[in-house]
Design a protein around this nucleic acid. Structure first.
Length: 120
DNA sequence: CGTTTGACGCCGA
DNA sequence: ATCGGCGCCAAAC
């Protein structure tokens, strides 16, 4: 299982895995890169999670993967600039019931959704 | 092939 | 509590 193809597949699987986890995030809830990375095994830096999301969001308004529900550990909308519009992330979150102020999720502790804890 | 950056997180001062 | 630096992995130049 050391074939180059398998390694490449493993990496690709990681991206797909991130998409799946993010897609499982219920509306009105938000998760963090670190939580997802940890859920996947913490083997990948939290950065890779965000990196995977870039590939997940074609930046064309496709909401297949609610990447807006994924924020950093501080509950800050760090990736808002990657959306179709800088406010799309906040707008979407507020539309789902998540209060956002100053690019920061309010009651982040309440809306926080941990896959390793909630998803089991 | 080597260097740099990136949707982050944690540790130390 | 706040600020800075280092680390992880991969892709892009």
């Amino acid at each position: 299982m050391n074939t180059p193809k398998e390694q490449a597949d493993s990496q690709r699987n990681f991206f797909q895995d991130v998409h799946e986890v993010v897609r499982l995030i219920p509306p009105g809830r938000v998760s963090t890169y670190g939580a997802i990375a940890h859920y996947l095994g913490a083997r990948h830096g939290a950065r890779m999670v965000g990196y995977a999301l870039i590939a997940a969001v074609p930046a064309r308004g496709l909401e297949q993967v609610p990447a807006q529900r994924v924020v950093n550990r501080n509950g800050l909308l760090t990736g808002r600039h990657h959306f179709a519009t800088p406010t799309a992330m906040q707008e979407t979150l507020e539309a789902e019931g998540v209060r956002v102020a100053d690019d920061q999720v309010q009651d982040f502790k309440k809306v926080f959704w941990d896959p390793a804890q909630e998803l089991i």
